[in-house]
Lab assay of single mutants.
Amino acid sequence: MDVFMKGLSKAKEGVVAAAEKTKQGVAEAAGKTKEGVLYVGSKTKEGVVHGVATVAEKTKEQVTNVGGAVVTGVTAVAQKTVEGAGSIAAATGFVKKDQLGKNEEGAPQEGILEDMPVDPDNEAYEMPSEEGYQDYEPEA
């Protein structure tokens, strides 16, 4: 019985440690998101679009440190934060509304985080759909 109880105690310690790591990862992701939003706020009209992409990228980098179902929630929060940063930029006159959601080359930025393969159960990952990809044929 002692062996059984000791095993359960060790398992509990492992769960607590994993929860603490997840909590730490979420806190880091939130900190990076805040950094990115402050970065966007300090940019001029020309830099705002690039700044919004930076927020998304920093958040995406930190999301990889967070495991399990938390990833889905962090990704949703990050996307809403990026959308909010863009709205703030438009409201303050840093950028025109028609410039939001495009990178410096004018290509749409939507789907940055949505296409990231995420499995809350950590069982399997699927690649994003290939609808947006084109076949590449090298020139002879």
Results as ranks from 00 to 15, higher is better:
Asp2Ile: 01
Asp2Phe: 14
Asp2Asn: 12
Asp2Met: 02
Asp2Arg: 02
Val3Cys: 02
Val3Tyr: 03
Val3Met: 07
Phe4Ala: 00
Phe4Tyr: 02
Phe4Gln: 00
Met5Arg: 08
Lys6Glu: 01
Lys6Gln: 02
Gly7Val: 11
Gly7Lys: 13
Leu8Asp: 00
Leu8Glu: 00
Leu8Gly: 00
Leu8Tyr: 02
Leu8Cys: 01
Ser9Ile: 13
Ser9Asn: 11
Ser9Arg: 12
Lys10Gln: 03
Lys10Asn: 06
Lys10Trp: 05
Ala11Met: 14
Ala11Phe: 03
Ala11Lys: 01
Lys12Thr: 09
Lys12Ser: 09
Lys12Cys: 08
Lys12Ile: 02
Glu13Leu: 01
Glu13Val: 06
Glu13Met: 11
Gly14Arg: 12
Gly14Phe: 13
Val15His: 00
Val16Arg: 15
Val16Thr: 05
Ala17Asp: 06
Ala19Val: 12
Ala19Gly: 05
Ala19His: 11
Ala19Trp: 14
Glu20Met: 10
Glu20His: 10
Lys21Pro: 00
Thr22Met: 12
Thr22Arg: 01
Thr22Ala: 07
Lys23Trp: 09
Gln24Val: 15
Gln24Pro: 00
Gln24Trp: 08
Gln24Leu: 04
Gly25Thr: 15
Gly25Cys: 12
Val26Arg: 00
Val26Lys: 00
Ala27Ile: 13
Ala27Ser: 06
Ala27Phe: 11
Ala27Met: 11
Glu28Met: 11
Glu28Leu: 15
Glu28Asn: 02
Ala29Trp: 11
Ala29Cys: 14
Ala30Gln: 04
Gly31Val: 03
Lys32Ile: 08
Lys32Pro: 00
Lys32Leu: 12
Thr33Val: 06
Thr33Cys: 02
Thr33Gly: 03
Lys34Met: 04
Glu35Met: 15
Glu35Gly: 05
Gly36His: 14
Gly36Asp: 04
Val37Thr: 01
Val37Leu: 08
Val37Ala: 14
Val37Ile: 06
Val37Asp: 00
Leu38Gly: 02
Leu38Pro: 00
Tyr39Arg: 13
Tyr39Thr: 05
Tyr39Trp: 06
Tyr39Glu: 03
Val40Glu: 00
Val40Lys: 01
Gly41Phe: 11
Gly41Pro: 01
Gly41Ala: 12
Gly41Thr: 12
Gly41Tyr: 12
Gly41Cys: 14
Ser42His: 10
Ser42Asn: 11
Ser42Met: 12
Ser42Ile: 14
Ser42Trp: 09
Lys43Gln: 11
Lys43Trp: 14
Thr44Lys: 01
Thr44Glu: 00
Thr44His: 02
Lys45Glu: 00
Lys45Ile: 11
Lys45Val: 04
Glu46Gly: 03
Gly47Leu: 14
Gly47Gln: 10
Gly47Phe: 15
Val48Thr: 03
Val48Ser: 01
Val48Asn: 00
Val49Ser: 14
Val49Trp: 08
Val49Ile: 13
His50Met: 13
His50Tyr: 06
Val52Phe: 09
Ala53Gln: 14
Ala53Val: 08
Thr54Arg: 12
Val55Tyr: 14
Val55Gly: 02
Ala56Glu: 01
Ala56His: 15
Glu57Ser: 09
Lys58Met: 12
Lys58Glu: 02
Thr59Trp: 08
Thr59Gly: 14
Lys60Arg: 12
Lys60Pro: 01
Lys60Met: 12
Glu61Phe: 05
Glu61Pro: 04
Glu61Gly: 10
Glu61Asp: 14
Glu61Leu: 10
Glu61Ile: 08
Gln62Thr: 08
Gln62Met: 06
Gln62Trp: 06
Val63Cys: 02
Thr64Met: 03
Thr64Arg: 15
Thr64Lys: 06
Asn65Gln: 07
Asn65Pro: 02
Asn65Val: 10
Asn65Thr: 05
Val66Leu: 10
Val66Met: 10
Val66Asn: 01
Val66Gln: 01
Gly67Met: 15
Gly67Thr: 13
Gly67Arg: 10
Gly67Ala: 09
Gly67Val: 09
Gly68Asp: 09
Gly68Ser: 13
Ala69Gly: 07
Ala69Cys: 13
Ala69Thr: 11
Ala69Arg: 14
Ala69Asp: 05
Ala69Lys: 09
Val70Thr: 02
Val70Asp: 01
Val71Pro: 01
Val71Arg: 11
Val71Phe: 06
Thr72Gln: 10
Thr72Asp: 09
Thr72Pro: 04
Thr72Glu: 12
Thr72Ser: 07
Gly73Met: 14
Gly73Cys: 11
Gly73Glu: 03
Val74Tyr: 10
Val74Arg: 01
Thr75Met: 13
Thr75Gly: 11
Ala76Glu: 04
Ala76Lys: 08
Ala76Tyr: 15
Val77His: 01
Val77Gln: 02
Val77Pro: 01
Val77Thr: 06
Val77Ile: 12
Ala78Leu: 15
Ala78Phe: 13
Gln79Gly: 05
Gln79Ala: 05
Gln79Tyr: 05
Gln79Pro: 01
Gln79Asp: 03
Lys80Thr: 04
Thr81Met: 14
Thr81Cys: 07
Val82Ala: 10
Glu83Asn: 09
Glu83Lys: 04
Gly84His: 04
Ala85Thr: 13
Ala85Asn: 07
Ala85Gln: 02
Ala85Arg: 05
Gly86Tyr: 14
Gly86Leu: 07
Ser87Asn: 12
Ser87Ala: 13
Ser87Leu: 10
Ile88Arg: 03
Ile88Gln: 01
Ile88Pro: 01
Ala89Val: 15
Ala89Pro: 06
Ala90His: 13
Ala90Asp: 09
Ala90Trp: 12
Ala90Phe: 15
Ala91Glu: 03
Thr92Gln: 03
Thr92Glu: 02
Thr92Gly: 09
Thr92Asp: 02
Gly93Asp: 05
Gly93His: 07
Gly93Leu: 09
Gly93Arg: 06
Phe94Met: 03
Phe94Asn: 03
Val95Ala: 05
Val95Asn: 11
Val95Ser: 11
Lys96Leu: 10
Lys96Trp: 13
Lys96Met: 12
Lys97Gly: 07
Asp98Ile: 06
Asp98Ala: 05
Gln99Arg: 05
Leu100His: 04
Gly101His: 12
Gly101Leu: 10
Gly101Tyr: 08
Gly101Thr: 07
Lys102Glu: 08
Glu104Gln: 10
Glu104Gly: 10
Glu104Trp: 03
Glu104Cys: 02
Glu105Met: 15
Glu105Arg: 12
Glu105Gly: 07
Glu105Tyr: 15
Gly106Asn: 04
Ala107Cys: 05
Ala107Glu: 07
Pro108Thr: 15
Pro108Phe: 10
Pro108Gln: 13
Gln109Arg: 14
Gln109Met: 03
Gln109Ile: 05
Glu110Ser: 05
Glu110Asp: 10
Gly111Val: 15
Ile112Val: 12
Leu113Met: 15
Glu114Met: 03
Glu114Pro: 07
Glu114Lys: 15
Glu114Asp: 14
Asp115Leu: 07
Asp115Ala: 13
Asp115Glu: 10
Asp115His: 09
Asp115Tyr: 08
Met116Tyr: 12
Met116His: 14
Pro117Trp: 10
Pro117Glu: 02
Pro117Ala: 08
Val118Ala: 06
Val118Ile: 07
Asp119Asn: 05
Asp119Ala: 04
Asp119Trp: 02
Asp119Gly: 09
Asp119His: 04
Asp119Met: 09
Pro120Gly: 07
Pro120Ser: 08
Pro120Ile: 12
Asp121His: 07
Asp121Ile: 15
Asp121Val: 06
Asp121Cys: 06
Asn122Trp: 06
Asn122Ile: 06
Asn122Met: 13
Glu123Met: 15
Glu123Thr: 09
Ala124Thr: 02
Ala124Arg: 07
Ala124Tyr: 05
Ala124Asn: 10
Ala124Asp: 13
Ala124Pro: 03
Tyr125Phe: 14
Tyr125Cys: 09
Glu126Ala: 12
Glu126Leu: 03
Met127Tyr: 12
Met127His: 10
Met127Lys: 12
Met127Ala: 03
Met127Pro: 04
Pro128Phe: 02
Pro128Leu: 08
Ser129Leu: 05
Ser129Ile: 06
Ser129Val: 11
Ser129Asn: 04
Glu130Leu: 12
Glu130Ser: 03
Glu131Phe: 03
Glu131Tyr: 09
Glu131Arg: 15
Gly132Lys: 06
Gly132Ala: 15
Gly132Met: 08
Tyr133His: 08
Tyr133Ile: 02
Tyr133Pro: 10
Tyr133Lys: 05
Gln134Ile: 06
Gln134Ala: 09
Gln134Leu: 08
Gln134Phe: 07
Gln134Tyr: 09
Asp135Gln: 07
Asp135Leu: 08
Asp135Thr: 04
Asp135Gly: 04
Asp135Trp: 05
Asp135Ile: 07
Glu137Phe: 05
Glu137Leu: 06
Pro138Arg: 07
Pro138Asn: 04
Pro138Ala: 09
Glu139Asn: 11
Glu139Gly: 07
Ala140Trp: 11
